[in-house]
């Protein structure tokens, strides 16, 4: 039997999707409440959380919850995110990536190099945010640490948060930009044409398996 290009391919299971979206929701809440406390130009965001004190109170709990939920996602997607030589080539040709010249790029497996970097940067920064966040956490843990460590933790927390927020903005944009991607994470499926164009190696692998 011929597989048709209009056929839908399963990309994420139901539990993959739920895991992704609970992390996404907690991430957005953590980012908004964190930005509110980071720069006064964002202080108005505290209104979303019931004022300054509430923002300060809930932010660490949201962050902790996000981290716990992210562990599931990290384990789930770990094995699909090993970086390869083809990925390095893909990154080198970033002009072709943003210029929509996918035909010039090496064949992409389940994830392209950009997606893999999103994964690994999260794997590095989220534990860093958790660790520094615990050190800063008033009133529970901060009093047990020296002021020197508190200052270092605050700077590292801000830097890591900046990296991860910028990263997720790129991640969200990429999902909007590459049409047909959002449905992968909302409905679980992509079209075969989408898979062929953006993740040809993955498409081949799946087609082989299906035959």
């Amino acid at each position: 039997m011929m597989r048709t290009d209009s056929a839908l391919i399963q990309r994420y299971t139901c539990s993959d999707r739920v895991n992704h979206w609970v992390v996404a929701i907690t991430f957005i809440l953590a980012a908004l409440s964190g930005l509110a406390l980071f720069d006064p130009i964002f202080f108005w965001l505290t209104n979303l959380f019931g004022g300054g004190p509430w923002t300060r109170i809930v932010h660490p709990y949201i962050g902790l919850l996000m981290f716990i939920l992210f562990i599931g996602m990290a384990l789930r997607f770990w094995s699909s995110n090993h970086l390869t030589a083809a990925d390095r080539q893909w990154m080198k040709q970033w002009r072709d990536v943003i210029g929509k010249h996918e035909e010039n790029l090496p064949q992409v497996g389940k994830y392209n190099a950009g997606q893999k970097y999103v994964f690994w940067i999260l794997v590095i920064t989220l534990p860093l945010l958790l660790l520094t966040g615990l050190i800063m956490w008033q009133p529970w843990f901060a009093p047990y640490f020296s002021i020197g460590l508190l200052r270092l933790a605050t700077v590292v927390h801000a830097l890591a948060a900046f990296c991860v927020i910028a990263l997720i903005m790129v991640h969200i944009y990429a999902a909007i930009w590459v049409k047909g991607s959002v449905r992968a994470m909302t409905r679980g499926t992509v079209t075969a044409a989408w898979a062929k164009q953006h993740h040809a190696a993955w498409h081949n692998e799946i087609s082989k398996g299906a035959k």
């Binding site: 048709t4 909007i176 930009w177």
Partner: peptide, 20 residues
């Protein structure tokens, strides 16, 4: 940057016509 990338380059759509 994201917004203007979209406005200038346009969305990355599936080029291949879906065939049966």
């Amino acid at each position: 940057a994201g917004f203007f990338h979209y406005v200038t380059v346009g969305p990355n759509e599936v080029k291949e016509e879906e065939e049966t």
